[in-house]
Nucleic acid binder design. Structure first.
Lengths: 353, 353
DNA sequence: ACTAATTTCGTGTACGTTACCGTTAACCAA
DNA sequence: TTGGTTAACGGTAACGTACACGAAATTAGT
């Protein structure tokens, strides 16, 4: 009934109804000190009744508050360009929230070098950021860093991989186990009932290995749960150069006749290259990630399926979550699992990372 | 060099440099009349040099401009809840741009009733909206409406289906042909080299049929291009009630032993129901859309694959495109094809429409 | 009861734009 | 010359919020 005026209720209206000045209203809105419990209650009640929504434009215009976020992810390397996508998402988010007074400063580390991770964290800590987005790939070193952030009450979001149990704002990334499970589901469609499947892990660092193991676990469990008679074999390849991978694959493929090869990460292109060079046909190949090299082999049918989990969106939503949490005081879903996308020769053109 | 002051350049600074008042600067910014060519050029030059970006917050705060958008899509029916998703996306977009002075008014029509479509368009036209989002399902009637909008210079965006050649802002939706093509690609993986495939169209309205035919075309062409020896059969079912569908299916399935059934729209759940009730096993089933009923049969393995094209995002991006075009004067991609997502029992949990 | 300290509150200005109103000057017709 | 018309521009009050400053009211200390 009482809204005959032009729609908008603001601090002015609230102040009028409460018989105080807008200054006082402002104090309770931004819960600053200097207002008695009594008037505070009165004002809150009115705010409640009016369902007052502060005008975000006026707020931003008047505020000179600034926030600074840090991001810490692997640098994109020649070996794998995977991290170009999350970085891209980060940059997009950064440009979107720039106008809201948020500055984003990126830090990087070398995936194959724990020391470089420590270097970056050492640079980040003294700068007292208001929020941090990170890919906690090195578990041990990450935990130390996380502890330091917790002490300073700096909200933290993880992308791409999680360290469960460590308190932080949220995790945004794949459900690794389930993505392995899905891969097995697809593998299961591909060939006759009883098949020989080779699982290939290609990775240097033991921590990343951990990452791959969860996928493998999902992959294996699928067949266990479905009581299949498939034969699963695994090889670990700990050098990522082609000659070494070539040798290992030759060695393994000589042992048996496989129907499906499942590569647990984006290195699947290297295996595809091997297939192509050695004229291996009839083996279905499944791997990970929407990368240029992988798409190349998807197009020429060497790779059959790629599993992809929106790396760009991980970066984007990661930063946005910090923003929503810190600026809009929204509460954030603790575990945000990315969709598990299935990419083939016939739909990659329309895929958006 | 010249920016020693605190970062922000605004109309005031521009006015100072041009020796005019901010009023004049405002006029050239919003290209209104009332400023000489000479001073206009001078001001534009300064704007260029300073790379002036107007402060969106101040702009919104001071502006009392209002825009009204209309949306016209099918009402969600019991038969298929597909349109709940686009509507959802529309509502989400509407709430996001509400603060920017944009009001969104939804209109609906009955998919099985051309007259209801005409009724809605008749209501829309006199209201002089600033932009319209629509699903142009009835081609003939739509074209008349489009013409009226063009005459009034009202920007139009299409979602879900396109009427190529008719000028409008953009189309956001599936590439139907390609989604059929992909379905064939998947079907091709599912069973032995030489298979019998049944294509099922279930639809009342002839115009929607057109929609389905494009998928069928993609589906067929895949096999043609790949020189397969598969045998493709098609049935059209023009009544959507279960008894009728049941009868038609029984009739058809008695004729032959099929390996794969491809349903060209979201009615796949009905076919799945038939499979379940008649204890039909061993036939792979592929269909469309992330609907509750379909997911049910996906879970219990009656349906093998669902193709889905982010219906919610279609609505969301549709409205946003109008906003970007009209408010931010961004130029919009004419054809925005949705990703073609493959949903199975093992990844539907993480799918986001 | 008087001062000092502290809490509570009101006022004014700033943020960058928009939009309107008013002013100037230039031009043309009578 | 005068009066009227109009193009070109200046000035300024909003818009709703943040924040600093200072006034007023309350409490504490003697």
């Amino acid at each position: 009934m009482e809204k005959k005026n032009s729609g908008t209720v603001g601090v002015k209206e609230i102040a009028r109804l409460a018989n105080v000045s807008i200054g006082t209203v402002d104090r309770v809105l931004n819960n600053r000190v200097g207002v008695s419990e009594k008037t505070k209650a009165k004002i809150l009640k009115i705010i409640e009744e009016l369902d007052y929504q502060p005008n975000i434009f006026a707020r931003r215009l008047a505020s000179k508050k600034k926030l600074r976020f840090a991001t810490l992810i692997p640098q994109v390397s020649d070996e794998t360009k995977y991290w170009a996508a999350p970085l891209n998402g980060i940059q997009q988010a950064a440009s979107e929230i720039k106008d809201f007074g948020i500055e984003v400063i990126p830090f990087f580390f070398d995936q194959n070098n724990r020391a470089s991770f420590l270097e970056s964290t050492a640079k980040i800590i003294p700068q007292d950021f208001d929020g941090i987005l990170m890919a906690p790939m090195f578990e041990e070193e990450s935990i130390v860093f996380i502890q330091q952030c917790n002490d300073r009450k700096i909200p933290l979001v993880f992308i791409n991989s999680d360290i469960p149990g460590y308190n932080n704002l949220c995790y945004i990334g794949p459900n690794l186990y389930q993505s392995g499970f899905l891969s097995a589901h697809i593998a299961n469609y591909l060939t006759p009932a009883s098949k020989k499947i080779l699982i290939v892990n290609i990775s240097k660092e033991i921590d990343l290995h951990h990452h791959l193991l969860r996928k493998e676990e999902g992959f294996r469990n699928y067949f266990e749960q479905n009581g299949s008679k498939n034969q699963l074999t695994k090889i670990d390849i700990q050098q990522t150069d082609y000659p070494h991978i070539e040798q290992k694959l030759s060695q393994q493929l000589a042992k048996d006749q496989y129907n499906v090869v499942f590569v647990t990460n984006s290195r699947v292109a290297t295996v595809a290259k091997y297939f192509e060079e050695h004229k291996i046909e009839g083996i279905k190949l499944i791997g990970y990630d929407f990368l240029e090299d992988n798409i190349h082999y998807l197009k020429n049918k060497t790779i059959d399926f790629l599993i992809c989990q929106k790396p760009q969106e991980q970066g984007y939503r990661g930063l946005m979550s910090l923003y929503y949490h810190l600026v809009l005081h929204a509460n954030i879903e603790k575990e945000q699992f990315m969709p598990i996308d299935i990419i083939t020769k016939e739909n990659y053109q329309y895929y958006s990372n």
